[in-house]
Design a protein around this nucleic acid. Structure first.
Lengths: 183, 183
DNA sequence: TTAAAACGTGTAATTAATTACATGTTTTAA
DNA sequence: TTAAAACATGTAATTAATTACACGTTTTAA
């Protein structure tokens, strides 16, 4: 496989909660799932067709207003089965994080390179902003213990993302401190 | 752009240090650069051709043994310029880490899901192994202060990766502790 | 001496993902 | 009442990336 087509499982996972239209799925990527995965509608509609061809989902057409057709997709029993299998199966491939900043850093040879400190400052700003954003999300999305228990996996990954960003900011900070002053 | 074609910059960055053949570049991805970026030779050879067409690199043919031709690529002045520009330019897009385990976790709704604890254990094992591997690399690749200063960027990213994995393992550990026992 | 491993360079097929193109309906707020 | 925003669904073109196909040379170790 060229990749692993995770989009199909995301779609199954979302449809496993509620029936949704292609448009609804697209919006899900603008909202919470978009925090850690991206997909465009031009990828979603063909994937829905493939999943339906394979029998993992079905759709019913509903009319909105006078004539606007909506296709409401439902997961099938075999679809739910496939989803369960995917989650249950091992996940042995640790994602190689293709971080462009890290890549650039690789080509910085000395601590006196004048590009280094500005780069670190920019990343510190960006990751601090991201951290602030994630902390705000945690407060709005999971304000109570009950809400955390209700959607435990999502709660865990938000927590994880916050910890990751906090580490990143801290590392940038420590690295900036460690760099010897220009001579 | 569909992506950002970072491979071209990696090639330029490596050629900026020494002239290399396509085969050498391929091997670089099996070695140290492969720790955080992947590319196959089937991607590298066409990219070399494109970079040469654009005037960023040139090659000279050398004969190895009786008749085996090697193309040794060199970076040009405009290529070095392009590399410098890429590094100097801002890196505002924080990589969305597409971590399959995190994605699966999103679809785990409750802390009583029987799949949760095994998943966390597997990830703890994998990330512990990765951490151990990275720590060993740090010791072999950068045994002395001098070696760290010589390739400062690379040293920083190895350090960063170790901290990241240490955080990941710690988070998995804390999460396993926090999960209520089955009833 | 000979076979395997490593060296060395390519192309083809397939899949994934992004951007752009394309079209029409319904709702909402000025 | 009307224009903009949101709803709704697709296809086409392009680029990136992986796997597979393809071929030949040189070195090394049994």
């Amino acid at each position: 496989m060229a990749q692993k087509n995770k989009l199909q499982f995301i779609i199954l996972g979302l449809l496993n909660q509620h029936p949704l239209t292609g448009y609804d799925l697209t919006k899900a990527f603008d909202n919470e799932i978009g925090e850690f995965w991206q997909a465009q509608h031009s990828q979603i509609y063909p994937q829905l067709k493939r999943l339906e061809d394979q029998g993992y989902i079905t759709h019913e057409v509903t009319i909105s207003g006078a004539k606007l057709e909506k296709k409401l997709y439902h997961i099938t029993a075999t679809g739910a089965q496939l989803l369960h299998t995917w989650i249950s199966d091992g996940t042995p491939d640790l994602t190689a994080t293709k971080d462009e900043f890290i890549l650039k850093l690789y080509f910085i040879r000395t601590s006196r390179d004048p590009r280094l400190v500005p780069m670190l400052h920019e990343q510190r700003r960006l990751h601090t902003d991201k951290l602030t954003h994630l902390q705000a999300r945690l407060k709005t999305v999971f304000p109570t213990k009950a809400s955390q228990a209700e959607n435990y996996g999502h709660y865990l990954i938000l927590q994880h993302a916050i910890g990751r960003e906090a580490y990143y900011v801290n590392w940038l900070q420590q690295t900036l401190i460690a760099i010897p002053k220009a001579r």
